[in-house]
Computed example of a mutant assay.
Amino acid sequence: MRKLLETYTTMEQTGQGPVSRGILLRGQGTQSTESVRRVFLERLGATDLAAQIHAEAGQDPQGQGVRLWLDHPATQTWAPGHNTMQLAHTLGLRTLDSETDLQREILVTMLMSPTGLDFPSLDEFESALHIRRNIVQAARRTTLAFDTNAAERPQDCWTYDEDRGFTLLPGVPLIEALIKTTQPEVSGRLYSFSCYRATEYVTLLGIAQELARSNTELFERLQEVWRQRAIMSEEFHTVFLREQGSLEQPVPPLYYVPGDRVWFRNPDEASADACGFEGSWVMYLGGGLFTNFWKQHQPYTLTRKCVEIYHWRHGLYKDEQGESQIDEVRIEPLIEATLANPDELAQVMARMTRWREPRGVYTEAGGCMDTTREFARWVRPGTSDMPIPRT
């Protein structure tokens, strides 16, 4: 039985370029590799991709497993250099209209993962697909009012305490409250959020919807926690998310999976001092688009997001209290002018698409591209690694 990464290391050493490590399914018992592959394809509605999806059994310090990946020719044709931004268009997927097509985009991008994604079972992988799909669908419907100082929630769903944050009122279902808070087509109004908190609510909704379907015991624990206190910020990351990539081993810059939580850093030290403009937290929607929580029907392309962040420096001013602020109205014509000028746009993008620098470091070498992606932990009974506190 070959070592799990042996094939991929060999391909890299022979100069075949970036390779797809794909996904690793553990817990397959005595099933043959071909049986695992066949069940995988059938269960995920991907039998038409049988020629492009390969499988190999192997072993590592964590035990045995079967690795499945999209072959190198398909990866290079559909997403050259692991650039998944045009994948949906290349495959002719109508992800806005079809849940099946959205799930196909998620599946294919995960199967070409350059770092490898580990799952304790096929059930767990299926839940990961569902959570990402839920997040994208919820994010598309989300519109909020940007405000780093104020925070509002529907008063018939939430109550606020300085120490506990926004907690559910007795008898209010968590999923219903999250939908009403983030989706104005349901609530009829916009509520104030920072972009960071917005990504938390959208991610939490996607996870809660899957827990309600596949792990009701953990869902009830989650809901009960939110009746006692909110899980926020660093604790939210620790409890609900895992991270792919690092500063030392970055994810390819244009490799995104629908449902990823992504950060774009503001590389300008002065304007990054303005509260809420240190960077921009978004969700990747697929099809080359990122969330615009403030203008639902105008999602960001990578180019527009980078140009907007670049021009934050030109909207910097001090308010009456001497605090740094950004005048977003002032920079709107600057953004449009840059987008309309190919030479200027090329210069701005060359600067902004560099890797971001470490926290607290600002030099001319730094850009706004993060080296990591964030996504949900495991959720299934018996294999979940989501440490939701017990109340």
Rank of each mutant, 00 (worst) to 15 (best):
G322D: 10
P258I: 01
G315H: 11
E185C: 01
R330W: 08
T84W: 07
V172Y: 02
Y310A: 09
P253S: 13
R221E: 11
D161N: 15
L5N: 14
D268G: 03
T143D: 11
S98I: 05
S194G: 15
E162I: 02
R94I: 00
E126D: 09
L190D: 05
E374C: 04
I23E: 02
S280D: 05
D118F: 12
G29D: 12
G366Y: 09
K305Y: 03
D370E: 12
A272N: 06
F146A: 08
A340V: 03
R227T: 14
F375R: 01
V186P: 00
S98D: 13
P381A: 01
S214M: 08
W294V: 13
C195M: 07
P18T: 00
T142C: 15
L339Q: 13
D327W: 11
L190H: 14
Y256D: 10
L96W: 12
R377V: 00
S280V: 10
W226F: 15
Q244P: 00
I135H: 08
I179T: 08
F40H: 03
P387G: 01
E357D: 04
T148N: 15
V202M: 04
M349E: 14
G22E: 04
Q28S: 08
S324W: 12
L345H: 07
G65F: 05
V307Q: 12
G367A: 09
P18F: 00
T7H: 00
A177R: 00
I335G: 08
L87I: 05
I326N: 10
P173W: 07
R242I: 06
L178M: 01
M232Q: 13
S192F: 06
E152C: 01
G116F: 05
V329G: 09
S280C: 07
E126M: 11
E99G: 06
L44C: 04
V108H: 03
V348K: 10
P120V: 07
R261K: 11
K295Y: 11
G366L: 11
T363N: 04
A50W: 00
P389Q: 02
A340R: 14
R227F: 02
T363P: 05
I106H: 10
H89Q: 15
L285C: 02
T143V: 11
W158Y: 15
P358G: 11
Q64R: 15
W312L: 09
C157R: 10
Q347F: 02
Y300P: 01
V136E: 10
L289K: 15
N341W: 03
A151V: 05
T75R: 13
C157K: 11
C195T: 13
G116Q: 04
S324K: 14
T47S: 09
A337Q: 15
G58C: 09
G15A: 00
H89A: 15
P170V: 05
L222G: 05
P73Q: 08
A57S: 15
R242V: 08
D156A: 08
T75N: 09
L334H: 10
P73W: 10
G188E: 06
R313N: 12
